[in-house]
């Protein structure tokens, strides 16, 4: 099941309000921000995972995705900008 990160009603970023231990049923309630990486879309998270799995090689990622290096680097630059923006929010 996908973790929803955006409110389906107003489209704002969701917060974590409860966490529960599935073993002893202990619940913790509060208002916790999602980590930056979890605030990205599933596709963007997959992109970062692929980057990690290809040892940080944009060239290798471009080869796997069958696109050119500059296109992959542009995607990376856009994602970096988005992460920077999320960090300041």
């Amino acid at each position: 099941m996908k973790l929803p990160i955006v409110c389906p009603s107003c489209e704002n970023i969701l917060k974590v309000s409860q966490m529960k231990c599935s073993y002893c049923d202990t619940s913790i309630s509060g208002s916790f921000d999602l980590p930056v990486l979890l605030r990205l879309t599933p596709e963007e998270q997959e992109f970062i995972l692929n980057f990690f799995l290809s040892s940080g090689s944009i060239k290798e990622m471009a080869r796997q995705a069958d696109i050119s290096y500059p296109t992959m680097r542009n995607k990376m630059d856009d994602l970096i900008e988005k992460v920077k923006t999320l960090q300041t929010v």
Binding site: R63, D66, I67, S68, Y69, P70, T71
Partner: peptide, 8 residues
């Protein structure tokens, strides 16, 4: 083509 093909 610059967006899709290998530079070589």
């Amino acid at each position: 083509p610059v967006a899709h093909f290998d530079e070589r």
